[in-house]
Amino acid sequence: MSQLIKQQALAVDTWKMLEIADGETPETVPLPEGDILFPLAVWQARKTEIISCHKRIGLILQPDEPVEDIAGDLDYFIVIAVNFPKFVDGRGYSTASLLRQRYQYQGELRAVGDVLHDQLFYLKRVGFDAWVLKDGKDAVNAIQTAFSTFGDVYQASTSQPEPFFRRRAA
């Protein structure tokens, strides 16, 4: 059971990830109906087809997939999911920062994969607004405590574009 956290609550997840099975390629994989998160390679190979048959389009990015490749496509996506194969792989934080700050992506930005309580605060700061918490982890406690670990921050980031030194009372 997927534990999707949005707006400080558990939410129903309608999105499914398109898996490419053995013997299939991004060019040949059948495109299912419904809310689908398309891998980057499928999106790049089948963009016109996807746009023609899907009103709601999602994308899933792996850590090594550069956001620059889809910078011109962002208006098509309702959801972009960024995968964290291991929580210690921090590339997705830069992916999120770039999507939000440089390319002004406005849709849902979702962290998926090895997503844990103790990373939620930083994930929120770089611009994620949806999290699929790893199975078996306490989502209720995470919602109650993990997003408010620190009451303020020093750096500029997506959720707080002004560093503390520019907000300091004169």
Partner: peptide, 16 residues
């Protein structure tokens, strides 16, 4: 010291 504050809990660079 300014660099210390910048490094402290930097959200993008905690998992280098």
């Amino acid at each position: 010291e300014i660099l210390r504050q910048w490094t402290t809990f930097h959200p993008e660079f905690a998992f280098l």
